[in-house]
Amino acid sequence: MPRYVLAVEYDGAPFHGWQRQADHPSVQGTIEAALARLEKGTHNIAAAGRTDKGVHGLRQVAHVDLARDWTPFRLSEALNYHIKPHPVAIVDCAIVPDTFHARFSALERRYLFRILPRRAPLTLTKGRVWQVKQKLDLAAMQEGASHLLGQHDFTTFRSTICQSLSPIKTLDKLDIFEVETEYGLEIRLDVRARSFLHNQVRSFVGTLERVGSGSLKPADVKAALEARDRAACGPVSPPHGLYLASVTYETSPFA
């Protein structure tokens, strides 16, 4: 039974997250329904990460075992045909050994968060970025972010419903930079780690936005981290500015 790996792009707005749900639309359920059109029966795809309701995917990675031998091109074309009109696309596909696992073989996950500080209402970027009305101090935000790097107990930045066995994670990178766009000067956060706690990235962003606005000082991020108390976290940012950007493996399955 061959195993196929899929690179998946999706707009998270109409879905209640990646994970299949009985009563709500999901990205996983959408792809599995398309697979059932190709091969009858129940399909269960495994993904590198379970994004929440409203979170987007630039290059989510998932794998699936199928009975039939498909060329990767034909499989991706067939899936994209049956996925329509849902905002999900298979942007790459490859055959991998059965030892490959989209989740457990991953070495690093990269998330991108987009913030657009502007007063005017959003039109073309609505639902794609987090709009804030005031300018943000990037230097202060980056100073605050520096306290989060490395291995820590991230209880403060962990959802109360997080199912991870331990709050201890290692944050490899949290870079904040500006990008000039047609819609204004956009702030982006590049966040990387092997794995994340539930709502960890959005909790980081919400706290750092408060630092950028002047409501908190950079040192307050360190104090919040050391408190190991969810109440010390700033407001959690909305999901629509967050993207699962890429997943890294020892060898790229798409090479």
Rank of each mutant, 00 (worst) to 15 (best):
V55P: 14
L216I: 09
A224T: 12
K173S: 06
Y243V: 00
P97L: 04
L244T: 01
G17E: 12
I45Q: 05
A22G: 07
L208N: 06
I168L: 04
H82W: 12
P167C: 04
V201T: 03
V96I: 00
C93M: 03
E39P: 15
W70R: 08
L38W: 12
R194V: 11
R118S: 14
F15H: 07
R194G: 13
A47W: 09
E209C: 08
R3C: 13
V221Y: 07
K126Y: 09
G127W: 06
R230K: 08
L208H: 05
D65M: 11
P97Y: 05
R228P: 15
A102Q: 13
F254D: 00
V61R: 06
E108F: 01
F154H: 01
F196H: 05
Y243L: 03
E9P: 00
R230M: 03
F177D: 03
H82A: 05
K133I: 04
V221I: 12
L79I: 12
E32Y: 13
K133A: 07
T156G: 04
E32L: 11
P239A: 09
K40V: 15
A94E: 05
M141Y: 10
A13L: 12
T125P: 01
P14V: 15
S237F: 01
F177L: 03
Y10F: 11
E178Q: 03
V179R: 09
K222I: 02
H240N: 08
A193V: 01
A22P: 03
E77L: 07
V211R: 13
Q142K: 13
Y4H: 02
P97V: 01
T251L: 08
L197G: 11
P238R: 11
F113P: 00
L75K: 05
E226S: 14
A227W: 07
D52M: 03
Q131I: 11
D65V: 09
V201Q: 02
D137C: 09
L79V: 08
I176Q: 00
Q131N: 08
Q200G: 06
L66Q: 04
T170A: 00
E39I: 14
K222C: 14
Q163V: 08
Q142S: 14
A231V: 13
W18H: 10
H152C: 05
M141F: 04
V64Q: 06
L244S: 04
A13Y: 15
R37V: 08
Q28F: 11
P87E: 13
S203C: 06
A67W: 05
A140I: 11
A67F: 01
R59G: 12
K173T: 03
L149A: 02
A48E: 02
G12A: 13
D153E: 03
E250H: 05
S203M: 03
P117I: 07
A36F: 10
Y243K: 01
R109S: 02
V61G: 13
I31H: 08
P235C: 00
A33Y: 11
R59M: 15
Q142I: 09
A13I: 15
A33R: 14
H43A: 05
L189M: 12
T71V: 06
H101K: 12
T30G: 09
R192H: 04
L138C: 15
V5E: 07
D23T: 12
F113S: 00
K133Y: 10
N80V: 08
